[in-house]
Amino acid sequence: MGAIDVLSWIALFGGAFFSILGAVGLLRMPDFWTRCHAAGVTDTLGAGLILLGLFFQAETALVAIKLAMILGFLLIAGPTAGHALYRAAHAHGVPFGPETEVLAANPATASPGSLEGEHGSD
């Protein structure tokens, strides 16, 4: 077993681990907004490491390029779809968890009170 195979093992195992971890988080988290963070773990490092592990096993340059392009697409489209989802949920007034704090905006750049009315706007 060469060094490449070892790297591949590590990446694939790591990917499987983070992927499951994110899904477990999806079930453990108390409300919608905290679940979103857990889903992010699966979509970024879970998918990334699995594709990286496959990348090490690619036999032709063409396959390697395709894997890199899939990863690139997932990293661009994932957060875009995610943002669309979060924005829709926010506009719909999905409630934030009870212990959510509204952190004061940076006083130098934001007008005071710019966060008022964030809860359930629209």
Partner: peptide, 23 residues
């Protein structure tokens, strides 16, 4: 992700959700 793993693997979820506006 490593930070998230630490939170998710803890027996109790230690969350302090924040809502903020960044410029």
């Amino acid at each position: 992700n490593v930070g998230m793993a630490r939170i998710l693997l803890a027996p109790r979820l230690l969350l302090s959700p924040q809502l903020l506006r960044v410029p």
